[in-house]
Amino acid sequence: MDEAGLNLADVAADARRRLDPTRWDYFAGGAGGERTARANEEAFARRWIVPRVLRGVGERDLEISLLGSAVSMPVLIAPTAFHRLAHPDGEVATARAAAEAGTVMVVSMAATRRVEEIAAAGGTPWFQLYPQPDLEFTTAVVRRAEAAGCRALVVTVDSPVFGRRDRDLRHGFVDLPPGMVCENMRDATGQVRDIEMDAGLSWERIAWLRGVTTLPILLKGVLHPADARLAVEHGVDGVLVSNHGGRQLDGALATLDALPAVVEAVAGRLPVLLDGGVRRGVDVLVALALGASAVLVGRPVLWGLAVGGAAGVRHVLELLRADLDGALALAGATRPGDLGVDLIAPAARP
C-alpha cells in the first residue's frame, strides 16, 4: 500500500481515487435517495459516551466468544458481493486478512471466488445464504459451505425483492465484467445461475433449513422486535440487526436505532449482532454497550481491499482494533463484557 491511512475515512478516500467510478458507486451506494445508508452512520453521531474513571484499565482484552468459538475482537467482516471488483485476488485476500486478524469473515453467496478457495485461505468463515426457490440447489450450496469448513450460516431475510439503487441504474451496472461470475452459484453441471430473490420466503423456509443443516443459523436483516422474538421461537442461533447497508428499503430504521428494542426482545436468549455505519472503534463500543455481541463491517473492508489487497483489509481491521482498545480504556473498561447501557447517554433527536 502506498498510503496506510490514519482512519477509515482516509482509506475510503484512497479507495475512491483508485476505483473506477462505476465500481466505487456500486460499493458506496444505497437504495433510493440513500437516506438509510446515511442514517446508519448518523445514528452513531447522536450517541454520547459517559465514561467511568479510576477503573484500573491497564490490561485490556478484546477477545470474545461467539457461537462457541474465540474471536480476537468483536469486529467481524460482513458479507459483501463481488470483491474482485475491488482487487484481483477478491475474497481470498479478504479471507487471508481475516485469518491473520483472528476474526470471522462471512462469505457472500455472491462471492467472485469459490467458497472452497476462500476457506482454504485460512480462518473459520461463516457463509451468507440467500435461500433460493429451488430447494435442491439451495441444499447443494449449503453442502458446499459445510464441506469447505464454514462454521455458520447467515441467512439474509430482508430481500424478498432487489432494492432499487439509483447509482447502479445511472451507470447501467447490471452485470459483472467478463471473466467474473458468482462462483458459489454454479450448479452440478458447472453452469452459473442467477441469484433469485424469493418473495415467498417465510418462517417455514427457516424451519426447512434447520432440517437441512446442523450448522448454527443466524438471520441477517432483523430490525423489528417482533421478528426477533419469532427468531427465538423458531430456534435460530443468532440475529443480525441489519438493513443491508441501506441498499434495500430506503427509509428503513438505522441499525443502531433498532438495536435496543431487538436486544430487549431477545432477552439474552441468543446473540445479537449489528452491521451498518461502523466507522470507528467508538462506534463498536457504543454498539456493544447497547447490547450487541459484536459488529460487522462491510464497506470499509472493500475500501481496504481496493487500496492494498489483503494488507489493506488487515490495516482496516487493525485500525478498528486499536481504536476500540483505546476507547475501552478511556471509557473505563478492560473487556467488551464490561460495557453496559449505563455508559451511553440518551440519543439526541435527529
Results as ranks from 00 to 15, higher is better:
63 E>R: 15
64 I>N: 05
64 I>G: 03
64 I>C: 04
64 I>Q: 04
65 S>R: 15
65 S>K: 13
65 S>T: 15
65 S>N: 13
65 S>V: 14
66 L>R: 02
66 L>P: 10
66 L>G: 07
66 L>M: 05
66 L>Y: 10
66 L>S: 04
67 L>Q: 06
67 L>S: 04
68 G>P: 07
68 G>F: 07
69 S>M: 15
69 S>Q: 15
69 S>K: 11
69 S>Y: 01
70 A>C: 01
70 A>H: 04
70 A>M: 03
71 V>T: 01
71 V>F: 00
71 V>Q: 00
71 V>H: 00
71 V>S: 01
71 V>A: 01
72 S>I: 02
72 S>Q: 14
72 S>N: 12
73 M>I: 03
73 M>G: 02
73 M>F: 05
74 P>Y: 12
74 P>H: 11
75 V>D: 02
75 V>N: 03
76 L>F: 11
76 L>C: 03
77 I>A: 08
77 I>R: 09
77 I>K: 10
78 A>E: 13
78 A>M: 10
78 A>Y: 10
79 P>S: 12
79 P>E: 11
80 T>K: 03
81 A>V: 06
82 F>A: 14
82 F>I: 01
82 F>K: 01
84 R>Y: 04
84 R>P: 02
84 R>T: 04
84 R>D: 02
85 L>N: 10
85 L>I: 03
85 L>M: 13
86 A>P: 11
86 A>R: 04
86 A>W: 05
87 H>A: 13
88 P>R: 13
88 P>Q: 07
89 D>W: 05
89 D>M: 09
89 D>Q: 14
89 D>R: 15
89 D>E: 15
90 G>N: 05
90 G>S: 07
91 E>D: 14
91 E>T: 09
92 V>N: 08
93 A>F: 09
93 A>L: 11
93 A>E: 13
94 T>V: 13
94 T>Y: 00
94 T>C: 01
95 A>D: 04
95 A>E: 04
95 A>C: 06
95 A>S: 14
95 A>G: 15
95 A>L: 02
96 R>F: 01
96 R>P: 02
96 R>H: 06
96 R>S: 14
97 A>Y: 05
97 A>H: 04
98 A>V: 08
98 A>Q: 11
98 A>D: 12
98 A>C: 11
99 A>N: 11
99 A>T: 07
99 A>W: 08
99 A>Y: 08
99 A>C: 06
100 E>G: 05
100 E>P: 00
100 E>I: 02
101 A>L: 12
102 G>H: 10
102 G>Y: 11
102 G>F: 08
103 T>M: 09
103 T>N: 08
104 V>Y: 06
104 V>M: 13
